[in-house]
Design a protein around this nucleic acid. Structure first.
Lengths: 336, 336
DNA sequence: CTGAAAGCGCTTACAG
DNA sequence: CTGAAAGCGCTTACAG
């Protein structure tokens, strides 16, 4: 028996020969076009494919068509729970259109993001999903490359690119109002200093609506550590707020750790609401009341935006939905 | 000005023309081989590349070479924090060899894992990393495809495939022993029923070493929910154990929620150690004492195993390192 | 050290 | 409805 390892894979020509047709016809039936094929011929081809175990070579197809059945995703760090969930949703959504997702983390030191974008494009991706903040230069690069692109995540809207997000302002306003309805008058906010982020504004507006004085405002990175640091500062404040709005679940969880460490009880000593609706928020104690982002819908919209692009600059904001749990002081499932 | 969108990209032929050489020479300099090129010619080519802003077409290259500069990764669910960190490490490791990572989640209902494997291979990936449990059929498929493959994660070793993991038995044995040294005599174990998982054995051996009676044993899925359920059962047990070994951080965190909900204090009422060393373990309260898996090293080893394959069946186990924090009853950073 | 040319496996006008 | 053939942009023996 000759060397059988990595058998030269069967090619379109083999299928054509076996079925007694031209390779063109094989293409037509496999791609359902662009030409019609007689039902009987079609059956013969399909049969040959089955018998031979034929699989098209995606690279050849990509070269020929000038486009691979792949989408690119640029994300800062797929370990961040929110982005991990977003990646997953995007993988699903793009798989539903028969495309694979090439995920690239931009938090790498050896390579610039521009390099990564160029690399993605050289792989003939059909579109680029950006779940990351881009510098003006980088965005200009993306626009000049001429491939469909869409921004997704908490990065606001921008001229020149389509974008998908949620209504952060309304979401935070609602959760802040919820806290106020619990009777807390002194409501702090912990979020990022990013100017594209509307969560701070939502919090502010809710306080104004309720004619409350502005609460304590802390800017930290979007991470457990950021939340932990904020929690520490809140705990040590001369007048500790009675409630706090966290801009993300991660921040809230970091705060929980800082509070736990100091014996500060949530929600009894300080109530918390947060944003995102990641799974982890449901498995800390107390469970987090959080504004849930509809990731599946957002992901589907992002993929759609690549396949049938809208005008650049167009922004689609989905509503967040407040999920009530224990951290705000409610007793869901308790005595309702 | 004519239509400038998506300018026909500059090709190797353009570069060759501009530099006044053949396309072969362009290839030689860009790939550093297989032929040598005169220094001056080389400069001319490099210059042309710069001036024209040339980028090789990866699809053409893949077709020509029969291999894309891509590695495939099959993972059950990239949202699981441990696997999210593993994905990230693998992305880094493969990027370091100039390859992109095509990540595919197998937790999809519309498509079989075998289909996903075939799809990956049709994209001409240079190797397949499997961070997932495979059925015998699926593994046979991988082997028959003849591409380099490696199993990574808590899935043990297997004939026919190279694999990378950590020494679960020793790791758990060490953490269990640590608990015992705290004076706890009644140590439970919460893990999976998987026969490839050696963590249960490590726990058992530590108890035997200490001449302790076997503790309570619970089998649950590797998830927050699994941990939560286990925590509930532990809490409701007629004789609640004094300490528990969790097979993963996620399980431990789920247990923490169940305990928190019932007012059971950790570590005062029940001490916990877990496994994995994910970031989240450091930001719950109490912080988890956990056996850390050296993900970067494991990822690098996995990529290496693809590029210079070892004999199938070969297994490389890395040691886990116990990270002491508060959940076991220690006071790290406290009064040491 | 360099070039002309075949080939990788597809897709798709162009004829019939 | 089907086929012969050019072309996608690379790589790499094969000559010189």
């Amino acid at each position: 028996m000759p060397d059988e390892r990595r058998p030269r894979s069967v090619t379109r020509a083999d299928v054509a020969r076996y079925a007694g047709v031209s390779t063109a016809v094989v293409s037509y039936v496999l791609n359902d076009g662009p030409k019609a094929v007689a039902p009987l011929t079609r059956e013969r081809v399909l049969d040959a494919v089955r018998v031979l175990g034929y699989r098209p070579n995606a690279a050849a197809r990509a070269l020929s068509k000038g486009a691979a059945d792949m989408l690119g995703l640029l994300v800062n760090d797929n370990r961040n729970p929110f982005f991990a969930e977003l990646c997953h949703a995007l993988d699903q959504a793009s798989a539903e259109t028969g495309r694979s997702l090439l995920i690239v983390n931009s938090d790498r030191t050896q390579v610039t993001t521009s390099e990564q974008i160029r690399d993605l494009v050289s792989r003939q991706i059909g579109g680029l999903i950006i779940a990351d903040v881009l510098t003006a230069r980088e965005q200009a690069l993306v626009e000049s490359l001429g491939i469909p692109a869409v921004l997704i995540g908490p990065f606001g809207e921008t001229d020149g690119l389509q974008s998908i997000g949620v209504d952060f302002c309304a979401g935070t306003r609602e959760s802040t109002t919820h806290l106020i309805e619990h009777g807390y008058r002194d409501v702090a906010f912990v979020g990022s200093a990013a100017r594209y982020d509307d969560r701070e504004r939502g919090w502010r507006e809710a306080l104004v609506d309720a004619r409350l004085a502005p609460g304590m405002l802390l800017h930290v990175p979007f991470s457990y550590q950021g939340g932990y640091d904020a929690g520490t500062r809140l705990a040590d404040a001369e007048r500790r707020p009675r409630a706090v709005v966290a801009a993300s679940d991660q921040i809230a969880i970091g705060m929980l750790a800082a509070f736990g460490e100091r014996g500060i009880r949530v929600p009894d000593d300080i109530a918390i609401v947060s944003f995102d609706g990641t799974v982890t928020a449901d498995f800390v104690w107390p469970r987090l009341t959080t504004a849930v982002q509809p990731l599946e819908q957002m992901a589907a919209a992002a993929v759609r935006a690549l396949l049938e692009p809208s005008p650049p600059g167009e922004h689609h904001a989905f509503p967040a939905r407040l999920r009530i749990r224990e951290s705000c002081g409610c007793r869901p499932g308790g005595g309702e």
